[in-house]
Amino acid sequence: MEFFLQQAINGITIGAFYALIALGYTMVYGILKLINFAHGDLFMVGSYLGYTLVIALIISGLIPNLLVALLIIFLMAMGMVALTGALLERVAYRPLRKAGRLAPVVSALGASIFLQNVVMLIYGPRYHVYPKGILPDIHWSIGGAYVTLVQLATLVISILLMGGLYFFIQRTRLGTAIRAVALDHDTARLMGIDVNRIITLVFLLGPALGAAGGIMIGLYYGRINFTMGWGYGLKAFVAAILGGIGNIPGAMVGGFLLGIFETLAAGYLPWGGAWKDAIAFLILILILILRPTGLLGERVVEKI
């Protein structure tokens, strides 16, 4: 039972990362029917920016108040990655919007390689390690399992971010515009919505959330690497599909489910640890074969 609880807590933490990244995928897919293969790398860029900012602001003692420092770090990194995301859309995807489905996939792969290598050139190919002890090493015991402060903070921050996004999408004018564009570009345009602006907005929001995930993963695991965007990115995409691609609450649910499921399977199945990465793909394949609309469904109607 303790083991189960511990695995579940760890799974929820990882699930929060997946969910944050998955939101970026699902929003872009919902609006452009494009798999933004570079999204995972934006998340990685966020993680690296976070690393630099932690060193520059906290370790250097520039900002003594930890909470203020963290707040500034999050805002700065999220803002910079958001701008990178919007720039990426402008440069690599917008010119291809009418070029069929193959070209954007290649362009996205190119963007991914590009971002990885930019980071590699700046930071070098080795692992980087977030300084230890940024957050005090506090933990609580729940039924014999431990929850650390980092885990709790991760959970709280991601729920706040996701709640904020959900509120934004459902309750604000801009959010309504996003939903309208996702349904039908042409009709949205007729309703006076500037579709390009909405697409830019989505490419600001998704990467910003991804960047937050990137910083938290640095704080949680410590080690970051310029290739890590791929693995997390692919799994987050699986989470998005699990919840029904294009479906925003679905991406959140899918992320948590995948994180929990993966961690439990790794903990309980024989050889589970070694096969951990395969589990996500197995789920992906099963979902696409058995229930292609995901758990919460999506809107796809094809006319003949």
């Binding site: 440069v91 690599a92 010119p95 291809l96 070029a99 069929g100 193959l102 070209a103 954007p104 290649v106 362009s107 792969l109 190119g110 963007a111 991914s112 390689i113 590009f114 971002l115 990885q116 290598n117 930019v118 590699m120 050139l121």
Partner: peptide, 19 residues
């Protein structure tokens, strides 16, 4: 060190100008 960077950029440019 630069070649993969150039390579990624080339993939994007290629799709934009000669899909």
């Amino acid at each position: 060190q630069w070649r993969m960077l150039v390579f990624g950029a080339a993939m994007m440019l290629m799709m934009i100008f000669r899909p």
